[in-house]
C-alpha cells in the first residue's frame, strides 16, 4: 500500500521535472532538472527491485554524463537571452504533435497494459550477483564489443574537439 503511494508520488514528480527540463528557459536550469529527473527514475528502479541499476544510473548518468553537459554549457558561456524564442505556432504544433504521439504509443502498447506477472516474488533479480552472472556468461561478447565502442568514442571525441591548425581556406 505504501509502495503504491510512493510510486504515484514519484511518478508525478518525474513527469513534473521532465516537463521543467523542456520548458525552463535557462540551459543550466534544465540540466539540473534533468539530474533531478534521473534521481527520480533511480527511485523507480529501487521500487522495482533493480538496486544495482539504480546505483549505476545515479553514478553514470547524474554523476558523469550530466556533469559533462554542465561542463560544456559553462565552457560555451551560453545565456538565456542569446537564444531566440520559438514562435507561438511552433509551440502549439509541438503540443499537438506530442499529444498525438503519446496517444499513438499508448494504442500500440495497449496489449501490454494488463501484463500478468510471470514470476512474482523474485526479489533477487536486480542484485549485482545475478546481473554479473548473466553479464559475464550470456552477454560476454557484447560486453567486450562495448569496450571497443568506448575506445572509438574516445578517439573520435578527441579528434573532433581538437582545434585544427592547418585549415585550407
Amino acid at each position: 500500500m505504501i509502495t503504491d503511494i510512493l510510486t504515484w508520488i514519484l511518478g508525478g514528480l518525474t513527469i513534473g521535472s521532465a516537463l521543467m527540463v523542456v520548458l525552463s528557459n535557462h540551459p543550466i536550469r534544465s540540466v539540473l532538472f534533468l539530474v533531478i529527473t534521473f534521481f527520480f527514475i533511480s527511485g523507480h528502479y529501487i521500487l522495482l527491485n533493480a538496486q544495482f541499476l539504480a546505483i549505476v544510473n545515479i553514478i553514470v548518468y547524474a554523476g558523469a554524463i550530466m556533469v559533462l553537459f554542465l561542463f560544456v554549457l559553462m565552457l560555451l558561456n551560453l545565456s538565456a537571452e542569446g537564444l531566440p524564442k520559438s514562435s507561438r505556432y511552433l509551440t502549439l504544433g509541438s503540443v499537438i504533435i506530442g499529444g498525438l504521439f503519446f496517444i499513438v504509443l499508448i494504442a500500440a502498447l495497449k496489449d501490454s497494459l494488463h501484463f500478468e506477472a510471470l514470476n512474482p516474488g523474485s526479489n533477487s533479480v536486480g542484485l549485482v550477483q545475478n546481473l554479473g552472472k548473466t553479464l559475464f556468461s550470456k552477454y560476454i561478447v557484447p560486453f567486450e564489443v562495448s569496450s571497443i565502442l568506448f575506445i572509438s568514442a574516445m578517439v573520435g571525441a578527441v579528434m573532433l574537439a581538437k582545434r585544427e591548425k592547418h585549415i585550407v581556406e
Partner: peptide
C-alpha cells in the same frame, strides 16, 4: 504494470516534444 507503461510513454512524449520545441 500499466502505470509504468503510461509513465514511460509520457516521458518519451515529453522528450519528443522537447525535440520539437527547443532550439539549443
Amino acid at each position: 504494470m500499466e502505470f509504468y507503461v503510461v509513465l514511460s510513454t509520457i516521458l518519451f512524449s515529453i522528450g519528443a516534444f522537447g525535440m520539437l520545441i527547443r532550439k539549443n
